[in-house]
Nucleic acid binder design. Structure first.
Lengths: 243, 243
DNA sequence: TAGTGGTCTAGACCACTTC
DNA sequence: AAGTGGTCTAGACCACTAA
């Protein structure tokens, strides 16, 4: 059934992805784009959009003049770094059944780094929300969100801090999160962080230091997240671009 | 001048990128796609391909129904993680003038992790090439490449290990590097690594543990790289995908 | 309501791989 | 030479934003 929303490309992507996991292609060879187009009753452009997406995810690779193939190595990539939207989804993609625990909600004066990132004055009140994402009682991700109190349309806190940040901002600040600009920062976990993540202090970890922007490119939240490397490892495909 | 190779899309991308850095757009607003298409004498599809690329690089953002805009925050992204091809280019993108120093070239029996990654037997001979990428005498990236000796068509070593790995493999192994599958691993630098990178032992660092594949999806090299976080920080844009 | 970006089509030609 | 993916075109219609 051809419908819009999800888009044709979404549907074709899901369809091919399912065929890949069902091992539905002989020798890992995916049919020519023209065949796929006529089989599925869509244009070649739509097929190509779907295949491009799968190629970026690492699920397939293409060789001009030769064909399109399943990439068995790429299947180890559970999620693209750039497409992570919520950590619940991230953990689900890795095969976990995530739960969320709110560790702390409090107001505090804004530190310099956050003030700089969010365009505030140091000392302006911000709401701190510290959360832990767990797989079956084992902590995997620790996050600290900093939201300017001035942005709230209803007074915090309200007890629903366990919902995803983007939903929380939408509900309480009437600001839709459009994207994050993230820095990848290697750290050594201090005693507090290690305790929360249930590892030894001094364990190396990857962290995100990131600012969330709305559709008008205004900063609305600063977040810092720490990942347990033994439970969550990021993978990506690097290839030559352009010339 | 309309020519092929670089492709039209490449040329349009470069053109718009240049206009952005020259601040050639009022209020950071980029003209409608139809205008760009007729101005540059190409189809709207070509314009859209170029804009999509710039959007992924973080240089612009698009709002359906509203327009396309320069993303001043995104300009801090010096290079997309997924488009890094050589560390020389990476450093150049960050505004450095890189130099390369070959620290060590030697043969050794293959360790288990490398054997597993490259489909060898433990103990098979591999060539180890340790290199340092510097900016003005300051080390920034340390890499260790492991190449199966069996792949060489001419006997190593040959003294040209300072050329990029992809060129080295092409020359001596007759195997073209198609892509890397990389794992991002946070580490604490040991005494050796820290000494080579000229930092204190115990400094946290990001590392890549990666396998390079040829166009037939056969592994041909395993590399481990360490980055000085104070000189090279990776940034990316995270946004919602699909639905 | 006008104008923008988002999706999709049908078709042409090119570059490359394989035989 | 045949068949594949890569690039590009011209045009249609949809979804959304803003005045």
């Amino acid at each position: 059934m051809i419908t819009r929303n999800p888009s044709l490309t979404d549907q074709v992507t899901a369809h091919i992805k399912q065929l890949i996991s069902a091992d539905g292609f002989d020798d890992g060879r995916i049919p020519p784009e023209t065949d796929l187009a006529s089989d599925l009753g869509v244009s070649r452009t739509t097929i190509r959009d779907a295949l491009s997406r799968l190629e970026h995810e690492g699920a397939i690779y293409r060789r001009q003049g030769a064909g399109t193939f399943v990439n068995e190595h790429g299947l180890r990539i559970k999620s693209r770094l750039e497409n992570i939207w919520s950590y619940e989804e991230l953990l689900e993609n890795h095969g976990y059944e995530p739960s969320v625990r709110v560790l702390d909600v409090s107001q505090a004066p804004c530190d310099l780094a956050t003030a700089d990132a969010l365009g505030l004055e140091a000392g302006d009140p911000i709401l701190l929300v510290e959360k832990l994402f767990l797989e079956n009682e084992t902590p995997v991700v620790l996050t600290l969100n900093r939201i300017p109190v001035a942005n709230f349309t209803t007074p915090p806190p309200t007890g629903d801090e366990d919902i995803p940040v983007y939903a929380y901002l939408d509900t309480h600040c009437d600001r839709k999160l459009a994207y994050y600009l993230s820095e990848i920062v290697p750290v050594v976990l201090d005693t507090d962080q290690a305790g929360r993540l249930d590892v030894e202090p001094g364990t190396p970890a990857m962290s995100f230091d990131e600012v969330g922007y709305d559709k008008h490119n205004e900063p609305i939240v600063r977040a810092t997240s720490f990942f347990r490397d033994d439970l969550l490892r990021f993978r990506l495909i690097r290839k030559r671009m352009g010339t």
